[in-house]
């Protein structure tokens, strides 16, 4: 508030921010740091964790072809889900911001999209079973209308159902930030573009899309971290057929091999951070904030 904070008010500020800092240090910084440390420890059968400095865990993991195939599979899911959620999120936000003329209606429809976010993810995941299953709604409908003779097997417990569940769970993380940046676009900018002869598509491409870049980047960041760090959706929805980058962590933890689980976690963390950095390179966030 005051441009030159006094020493006393500065103390207040630090006191105000102290609880947050404390929680984050205790439950984020220290744990993550420990994960890094433990990832260099040694695991010995029957003994457990032995403090050491070894890169064997990493060598083990990186030379194991399973790690690579799991990462490739996860990246494939990430990419597919990213594209679908972006297309859905962008056009739904576009519909709400530019096509719904009544503001109250727009807010109501927006809330309609966000309500499921506040309900249990696991339940939402399970709820696909009676829909996609062998005797599920879709198969029944298709058989009854005579389009197919025998139930489609690939609807549930397949890559398809994994993608469906991801899209179901995470599209919201795209809609909200894109909606946020889109609703800040001055409508007269669109009119100015139309004035200059831009087609409807030209307006989207030349004006709306560039001005939503920050929202898209934030949404992409959420989706990438959520899909990359997921283990549960893949294991439930693929019926155990597909693994994910985190499957290794899961297996190691079953055998209490904390060092190698930690090393897996560190690799995952590095990959996620690299993608995050790349996203923020693509969108110059500082420049966006300055405007």
């Amino acid at each position: 508030m005051s441009p030159t904070p006094t020493r006393k008010s500065l103390l207040t500020t630090y006191l105000q921010v102290a609880p947050l800092t404390l929680v984050l240090i205790c439950f984020f910084v220290v744990p993550v740091a420990l994960v890094v440390v433990v990832s260099f420890f040694r695991y010995q059968m029957l003994v457990g964790i032995v403090p050491d400095f070894t890169i064997r865990n990493y060598v083990d993991l990186l030379t194991n072809p399973t790690t690579w195939s799991l990462y490739i599979s996860t990246l494939k899911f990430t990419l597919i889900v990213l594209v679908i959620t972006f297309v859905l999120g962008f056009w739904i936000a576009y519909f709400l911001v530019f096509h719904v003329r009544n503001l109250l209606v727009a807010i109501g429809l927006f809330l309609l999209c966000t309500v499921p976010f506040w309900t249990s993810n696991i339940i939402r995941m399970i709820s696909w079973r009676p829909v996609l299953g062998k005797e599920g709604l879709i198969n029944n409908a298709l058989i009854n209308t005579g389009i197919i003779d025998s139930p489609l097997q690939w609807l549930l417990y397949s890559d398809f159902s994994v993608v469906v569940a991801y899209v179901h769970l995470f599209t919201l993380f795209m809609i909200v930030p894109i909606f946020n940046s889109m609703s800040r676009i001055d409508k007269s900018l669109l009119e100015a573009a139309i004035d200059a002869g831009a087609t409807r598509w030209g307006v989207v491409w030349n004006v709306v899309l560039p001005l939503c870049k920050t929202g898209i980047a934030l949404g992409a960041l959420f989706v990438v971290t959520l899909v990359m760090g997921d283990f549960f959706v893949v294991s439930v929805m693929s019926g155990g057929l597909s693994g994910s980058a985190t499957s290794g962590i899961f297996n190691d933890l079953q055998f209490l091999n904390y060092p190698r689980a930690a090393a897996s976690a560190v690799i995952l963390l590095i990959v996620v951070l690299m993608i995050a950095t790349a996203i923020f390179r693509l969108v110059d966030v500082r420049k966006e904030l300055a405007r």
């Binding site: 993550v32 971290t225 760090g229 963390l269 996620v272």
Partner: peptide, 16 residues
């Protein structure tokens, strides 16, 4: 803290 995968954090806190 928002973008770190939840599983990584889970392991970290357990180890701590």
């Amino acid at each position: 803290s928002l973008i770190v995968p939840g599983l990584v954090l889970s392991i970290g806190i357990l180890v701590t």
